[in-house]
Amino acid sequence: MAKLNRDEILRGLLQTLVDGWGKGAILEALEALDTATPGDKHRRDKHSVEDRFRGVEALVAEMEMSPEHRRLMTDLARRFDDGRAFPRIGDVRGFLLSHQQNATDLKGRTQGFRRMLPILTRMSPKGLERLIARSHHSGPADLGEISDAIRGAGEDLRGKPQARAETVEPVDTQEVNTPAENAEPNANSSVAPEQGAVPQSNRTKRRRGQGYDIKGAKRS
């Protein structure tokens, strides 16, 4: 058997990698590897995505699409590159999984954007506009933020709790019914307006296990 020289072995290894991951991904990985010395790791982490990769805007620039799609896709890609759209890998993962695409092995946002591309290119301009407008959110739904939004919307619609209180004659609190209680029997009473009046300080305490001490309650 003929002995392979170093170049041939390298070419063989690279070909295997290119076959498995694609040329673009290998080039990106090599660029990242180029700067991956232990001494400058901390400094490198602070650099923008563009320092290490070309950015997803360049990916979009290489694709063929209608002018309107290009405008919107470029806008989204720019936002993605500077972290305004899909700021965390979890956001990318959420998008892919909600479209039933594999995202369990995702290593980075850029890799995720590549997988998002086939979905994005099949969206309508209107759909892309909506996505751009609302893609700055990060992570799963957070009860605190939703509660704050409900409270804000409640004040817009029904006035602030204080303002409401000023317009009501003082009566025995035992006799005060909520609007839901005033509804006819069987009416939906699942959400009382008073839920919107929970003080901000109480709500924010509930986040990340800072509120109810479930373990403590069990112990007692």
Partner: peptide, 25 residues
Amino acid sequence: ELILEKDERRLDLIPSRFDFSDALT
């Protein structure tokens, strides 16, 4: 509200708000 979209198909949602219960009162 547009939730998911692919080609001509969509998953749309008519969302609710807490003040929907006002309709009952």
